[in-house]
Amino acid sequence: MHEGDDLPVVRTLAELTDLVEGNRRLYVRWSKGPDTDLGDVSSTDELTGVPMPGLSANPLDEERWWEGRPLRLWVARRLYDYAHLPHEKGPGIRPWVLQGRETGRGPDNEPLVAEVRPMCWIDPGVIDEARAEVENQTHDWGPLDRTGHGRGS
């Protein structure tokens, strides 16, 4: 049994999109989960070891410049951009959604979030849906290619 298993699980991209549409100040965090993270409530800069004033997370809130484009694609892109993290950070790393207050920026300009309220886990199938949604786009994604070998290769 994983830590935080008492949290609900979002099982589809549509369900996650509905959650984002109905709430503000939502973030996705890729970690072992809230039970581990909330004991400390701060991330550490891996390069320097300096503690930061909040958990590093990635915002799910739609930006104004998105200008009415499909929220589903926005959410898919936010997941796609960081879907490589479980592979890089090792076993037990999973995405989960939290609500909180931004307290600063980390060294990669990511939001640091405090007053964290865990919302739900994100099922791996949602990540697969997000990947498919992004890969169905006709525009090149330039440096956001996370496969290491370019689109269409």
Rank of each mutant, 00 (worst) to 15 (best):
Y82Q: 06
D140A: 05
L112V: 11
A57I: 00
I127K: 06
L47H: 12
V126W: 02
D6H: 12
D45W: 15
A114C: 12
L19W: 00
K89I: 09
S43N: 04
A114H: 12
D18S: 05
E46P: 05
E102Q: 10
D6G: 08
W121K: 04
L73P: 10
R77N: 09
R24K: 07
S56Q: 13
V116H: 14
T138G: 05
G22F: 05
A76Q: 00
W65M: 13
G106V: 09
Y82A: 01
D81Q: 14
P70N: 15
E115I: 03
W65F: 10
N136R: 15
D35K: 06
G152S: 04
W96P: 12
D61M: 00
G39E: 08
G68M: 10
A114P: 08
I93R: 01
N23W: 01
A57G: 00
L73W: 15
E115T: 05
P70V: 14
P107N: 03
V126E: 01
L13D: 02
M119E: 11
D140N: 08
P118R: 09
I122C: 12
L112M: 10
P143T: 01
D61H: 00
E21L: 02
W74V: 02
I127P: 03
G90Q: 11
V116C: 13
V10T: 06
W66H: 13
G152I: 09
L112F: 15
W65P: 14
P53H: 13
R151H: 06
R94C: 07
D45Q: 11
L85R: 13
H139R: 03
V28H: 03
L13A: 03
E102H: 12
R29A: 01
G22N: 14
V116S: 08
G125S: 05
Q137D: 03
G68Y: 06
G100I: 07
R29D: 00
V10D: 02
N23T: 09
G148D: 02
N58V: 11
G4W: 10
Q137Y: 14
V134T: 11
S42R: 08
E15L: 07
D18H: 04
L55F: 15
M52I: 09
S43T: 09
V41W: 11
G22E: 13
L26R: 04
G142E: 08
L85K: 02
P118E: 09
N58K: 06
S42D: 07
R94D: 08
D140Y: 07
N109I: 13
G33D: 03
W74Q: 04
S42F: 10
T48G: 06
